[in-house]
Design a protein around this nucleic acid. Structure first.
Length: 646
RNA sequence: GCUGAUAUAGCUCAGUAGGUAGAGCACUUCCUUGGUAAGGAAGAGGUCAUGGGUUCAAAUCCCAUUAUCAGCUCCA
């Protein structure tokens, strides 16, 4: 039989079955693969035997699959160490994740930093022992018996969920046996560099009704250098954390007696939000949107119609006693839809009114669980670039496409387009209770959305079961400096709510029909977008959205008048300018302006004043002397008006 | 909401065998009238997150609450 290396002419012939390990040793003597794929199938252990012709592909740290195997084995090493140090720990699951791994344990021990260090030491000790993971399989019933014997209730539950006829695989590493699909590294001493990073709680199977287990997170790499540079990069990323620099640079603050998720936007943060809002509202007006301004609260009656009263009340701020039938009960709004729909409902509508594009800079209130709040990313009160497009069936494809294009335009303009990923969130046909509407509508809607996304050339992933209850959606996702992903923008197609709100238009044929509604945001929630912009630019926002664009620094008070004149001239064309004429050393003033990440400093001394020129210092620290005020003004205006990335 | 950690001056942090609250920077005043990352001096600023408890005595020990951080779950 012939064993060939994938994407290579290299070939070995054998007369009897051979292990992949041996074949690869001979095909690639210098390599040290972790596992392999046979005939483009799933990855398998190197100990697997080959008994017929095959093309094999070694997997090592250079491939995503290889890294996953490496990190998965590291998680087993962690479980081994924990079981040795804390035999009472019950094992749950331990997968590889991006850059590392975790393992969940049911145990009363708190896993203090000291204990974590102890576990890490034990792992290092075990890794040196050259343990060889050995795979074996058992029939389902025997597998359950084995796990019961070892006292592992979570593993028993996992096996019980597998089909009756499945063969269950285990790995034995020294004395440690774990249920596992594999594959694993051929030897545990392949693991060279890892670090346990933190302990956290995690619900068994991700369900908050289940018991909370202890999860240990770690990172692992093939070399010590790679691990160190990763850890260093993490430290650097944290310096961009908007929650840190946003407070330091005085964009926002929080006050404990005001409450969680209710940030105070300070003048700088407020100004940038205003700039973004004006930009969005103006652009939307240009694109045919009609602006609305609707109440921030409504009687409970409205939410009974929308369905929120029954399904979302625990997340709403209710004013008044819902149980007192004699007095009115209000609630702050968690969404804009039914308020904005009132414009459509204000009079009888015909097909001539469609598409009706409505936008609103809309403040919403959601009573999120107390542990959910995070900086400006997750709030209880936030303001979104909200909008609804009410249209006919014939118009919906075009309107959807335009909505996606608008969102893309916004992302490109603010500079976040390279940092987002697109997620097409579908319904789950096996879980129909979660959704309203018939399967045919769902499938058709998803098909046309998918087609448009491909036509526009968007690279998206599909996520089953992530749709809204009334329709599929395109979510534009972004990661913060900690790697946590959030939705920045969403565009949803809704065939359901129009009938619920009794929205009709008279079509050309004289028949009353329900319109289709697109729920969309163009730049997302302003606070969240600001947070991600602060992280993206490490606080040095592009000049056009910077709350302070130019600061004039005077060297001597003889130039105060010239400084004032420069400020007035620049302000008259709409540039935001401040003067620092404190009686301080110029070095100190420059240092402060740099720490505040200002786009430009104008340094004025006698020389500049007499020549009527400026000494201009940019963000990079480059200084240009002898610049005339007109020159600087036109350059600054160009950067602002073109919304340059500077 | 759950798991774990944290809360001392505007900021960064000291302050453990319970015994009267500290530093640097920032701030104010004065001196310094100047050249690209910190000139000098003096001063002011703290119910040690809040509320209880233990104690002769609590920033320190205990309980509760609030807020902040990471993670889970949830979500724009």
């Amino acid at each position: 039989m012939k064993i060939q290396l994938k994407n290579s002419e290299k070939l070995m012939e054998y007369n009897e079955p051979v292990s992949i390990f041996k074949a690869l040793k001979e095909l690639l003597p210098d390599s040290k693969p972790f596992a392999a794929k046979v005939n483009d199938g799933e990855a398998v252990d190197l100990t697997s035997m080959l008994d017929k012709d095959a093309i094999i592909e070694p997997l090592d740290f250079s491939s995503a699959e290889g890294r996953e195997i490496y990190r998965h084995s590291t998680s087993h090493l962690l479980a081994m160490a924990v079981k040795e140090l804390f035999p009472e720990a019950k094992l749950a699951i331990g997968p590889a994740i991006e850059n590392g791994f975790y393992y969940d344990f049911d145990i009363d021990v708190l896993f203090s930093p000291d204990q974590l260090e102890q576990i890490e030491k034990q792992m290092k000790k075990l890794a040196k022992k050259n343990i060889k993971p050995e795979r074996f399989t058992l029939p389902r019933a025997e597998a359950i018996a084995k796990m019961k014997e070892l006292g592992e209730p979570y593993k028993v539950e996992l096996i019980e969920d597998l089909p009756e006829d499945s063969v269950i695989s285990f790995y034995k590493m020294g004395d440690f046996v774990d249920l596992c699909k594999g594959p694993h590294l051929p030897y545990l001493n392949y693991i060279k560099a890892f670090k346990l990073t933190q302990v956290a709680g995690a619900y068994w199977r991700g369900n908050e009704k289940n018991k909370m287990l202890k999860r240990i997170y770690g990172v692992s790499f093939d070399t010590k250098e790679a691990l160190d540079s990763y850890l260093e990069a993490q430290e650097e990323a944290k310096k961009r954390d908007h929650n840190k620099i946003g407070r330091e640079l005085e964009y926002f603050t929080t006050v404990d007696y005001i409450g969680q998720g209710l940030p105070i936007m300070l003048p700088k943060g407020s100004r940038t939000l205003q700039i973004l809002q004006r930009f969005v509202e103006d652009e939307e007006e240009r694109r045919g949107y009609l602006l609305t301004k609707t109440p921030l609260m409504a009687k409970s009656d409205l939410y009974r119609i929308s369905g929120h009263w029954d399904h979302y009340r625990s997340n709403m701020f209710v004013l008044g006693d819902p149980n007192d039938e004699k007095s009115e009960c209000f609630a702050l709004r968690p969404m804009t839809c039914p308020f904005q729909f009132q414009h459509f409902l204000n009079k009888t509508r015909s097909y001539r009114d469609l598409p009706m594009r409505l936008n609103e800079t809309s403040t919403l209130f959601r009573n999120e669980a107390s542990g959910e709040m995070h900086g400006l990313i997750r709030l209880r009160q936030f303001t979104i670039s909200e909008g609804h497009i009410i249209c006919t069936k014939e118009q919906v494809e075009h309107e959807f496409e335009e909505s996606v294009k608008l969102a893309k335009y916004m992302l490109e303009t603010v500079g976040l387009d390279d940092d987002v990923s697109y997620r097409f969130s579908l319904w789950d046909e096996n879980n129909r209770d979660k959704y309203i509407g018939d399967p045919e509508t769902w499938e058709n809607t998803q098909d046309f959305m998918r087609k448009i996304l491909m036509d526009i050339g968007i690279d998206f992933t599909e996520a089953k079961g992530e749709a809204a209850f009334y329709g599929p959606k395109l979510d534009i996702q972004i990661k913060n400096v900690f790697g946590k992903e959030d939705t920045l923008i969403t565009v949803q197609v809704d065939f359901q709510l129009a009938s619920r709100f009794e929205m009709f238009y008279t079509d050309k044929d004289g028949i009353k029909k329900n319109p289709i509604i697109i729920h969309r945001t163009s730049i997302g929630c302003y606070e969240r977008t600001l947070a991600l912009l602060l992280e993206k630019y490490a606080g040095a926002l592009p000049m056009w959205m910077s709350p302070e664009q130019v600061r004039i620094l005077t060297i001597t008070d003889r130039n105060d008048e010239w400084a004032k004149e420069v400020q007035t001239r620049l302000q008259s064309v709409g540039i935001r300018v401040t003067i620092d004429n404190r009686n301080e050393k110029i070095g100190l003033k420059i240092r402060e302006a740099r720490l505040e990440r200002l786009p430009y400093m104008l340094i004025l001394g006698d020389k500049e004043s007499e020549n009527k020129t400026l000494s201009v210092r940019d963000r990079a620290g480059e200084t240009t002397d002898g610049v005339s005020l007109d020159e600087f003004t036109s350059k600054a205006l160009e950067l602002i008006n073109t919304k340059a990335k500077y």
